[in-house]
Structure formats: C-alpha cells, structure tokens
Simulated scan of single mutants.
Amino acid sequence: MTRTFIALEMNEAQQRHLSKVIGQVAQALPGIRWVDPAGIHLTLAFLGELSDEQLAEAISAAEKAASLVTPFSYRLSRLGSFGSQRQPRVVWMGVDEPSGTLLHLHRVLSRELEQRGFEIDKRPFSPHLTLARIKSPLAPTELQALQTVLTGKQQGLVSTESYPVTQINVMKSELFRSGAKYTCLKECVLKTEL
C-alpha cells in the first residue's frame, strides 16, 4: 500500500521564499510546529493508502488531467489559518491564480479520479500551502501574536513573483517521527501547445 496524493511541487525559488516567511513568522510564534519548506506542496487530491492497481489508476487519471490543461502561473497571496480564531489548526499561504486554470485543473483531475472509482473530497477547493500544523491549543499570547500576523500588513511575506506550473506530480508520502518524507512517483506534464 502506498500513501498517495497528487500535487504541485514548489521550485527552489518558492522554497526559499517560504523559508523566509516561516523564519519571520516563527519569531512571533516560536511554539508552533512549522513545516520544512522543502516538503511544501499544493495538494490537488489526497488519495490515502492505495494498492498497486489503484496507484496505476491514479497515475492514469493524473496523466489524462494534465494532458487536458495548459501551463499557467500563480502568485503567493497572503497568510491565513484554518480552524476557529480561538483554536486554529493550520497556518497557510494562499495562492492567487486569476485565470482560473488552477481551479479548472482541480475539476478535471477530480472528474478523472472519480471516473476511476476514487472518492473525491466534496468540500470546495481552497488552494493553499500549509506552513504550520497546530496540534494543541495555543496560549492566549500566542493566539494574539498569530492574529496580529494574520491581520497586519504582510509586506515581505507575500511574493510578487509569478510561479509557473508545467506539471502535476503523483506523490508518495511516508510518515516518520521526524516528519513526512515525500517522493515523486510520476511527473505528469501539462498540455503543450502545438
């Protein structure tokens, strides 16, 4: 069984920027467990534990979806959190992709996976990059610091750089005490214009 998801991986420039963001925000919130920037990705579909046959079907779905969508670019938009203000669970970096191609890619991929018997998350797609996971409730001072970061001016945290997307990746996730290790199983190149 292979713990599998389909995602956009970050390039080195994005990883450097996200490392800088995490470094800045972690000064205000040292008690939060921050993600290793080398492992940050934008998840399009989490599929869970798959047999070899299911993995082959997932790769087939990703290849088909990629062949139907043209390359695009996006920007990192703002910091936010999931969960309530009193008990946030995740700190994330948002993604701005005004052409709608990212949402189209997600819809096409979901359709291809569903046609192959995969159960699809029915919640609205909220493209983001997870920067931190918060396992236990934050102290009042930490909550205040997080809200200050999230509601304040985020200059220097967001990037005006545009990041190109030319492929989606079928990824393997292995969980260890030290954290998750991700391995790309298949790169699926987006449709090339003729």
Results as ranks from 00 to 15, higher is better:
163 Y>G: 11
183 T>F: 08
189 V>M: 09
188 C>Q: 04
179 G>V: 06
179 G>K: 02
164 P>H: 08
168 I>D: 01
169 N>W: 03
189 V>T: 13
183 T>Y: 09
172 K>D: 05
174 E>C: 04
190 L>W: 03
175 L>E: 03
166 T>F: 09
175 L>S: 09
187 E>V: 12
170 V>E: 03
186 K>M: 11
161 E>C: 05
171 M>G: 02
180 A>V: 10
160 T>K: 12
171 M>S: 01
164 P>T: 09
188 C>R: 00
174 E>Y: 03
185 L>D: 03
170 V>M: 03
171 M>V: 14
166 T>K: 12
173 S>N: 11
166 T>N: 14
176 F>Q: 12
175 L>I: 10
167 Q>S: 15
188 C>F: 04
183 T>I: 11
170 V>G: 00
183 T>A: 09
175 L>W: 01
176 F>V: 01
187 E>Y: 08
182 Y>R: 03
173 S>V: 06
186 K>H: 13
190 L>V: 03
164 P>C: 08
163 Y>Q: 09
174 E>M: 11
169 N>G: 08
189 V>Y: 08
189 V>I: 14
174 E>L: 13
188 C>M: 06
177 R>T: 05
175 L>C: 04
171 M>T: 06
182 Y>C: 00
177 R>M: 01
181 K>G: 00
163 Y>E: 13
173 S>M: 07
172 K>N: 11
183 T>L: 11
187 E>H: 14
167 Q>D: 13
188 C>K: 02
182 Y>I: 00
167 Q>L: 10
185 L>S: 07
184 C>I: 10
162 S>I: 07
174 E>A: 12
170 V>Q: 01
184 C>T: 09
169 N>A: 14
188 C>G: 06
181 K>E: 14
165 V>S: 01
167 Q>R: 15
175 L>F: 07
174 E>K: 12
168 I>K: 02
